[in-house]
Amino acid sequence: MNKKIYIARSPRIAARMLGQEMLVMSGQGSTLFTLNPTATILWQAADGATPLDQIVEHRICTEFQVQPEEALRDAESLAEDLAKHGILQISDQPIPKPVASVHSSQQPESQPESQPRSLKR
């Protein structure tokens, strides 16, 4: 039996849906990212309590009409990538919600590639 994976939004990240794109900004390094549609779904569903396979089954497979096994492999890889950038937290156990969070609005999703940019001047 496969091990369950849980994902949660990093409390160090601020996020906002602007138009059709999800922008997220890391407090560390002032780096700005634009999430692609799949990453946006993961971000929106990353409540720390829902296993990744359920997110894939209910949110990604229905959206993109892809096989669950393939979608789960891709989602795991993407979640790890997002975790490397400090956007998501990953655990094999449910992740408790932080006391205070800086997240903001979430709605529909769309569009391309993670794209870091610096806010520093």
Partner: peptide
């Protein structure tokens, strides 16, 4: 979204404090 990205790219912001970065965002 382009407006947000370009505004952020042109904002003056110096602090590396996480809370301040989020406020600016």
């Amino acid at each position: 979204s382009d407006a947000g990205r370009e505004l952020l790219a042109n904002m003056l912001f110096f602090a590396e404090d996480s809370e301040m970065v989020h406020s600016a965002f």
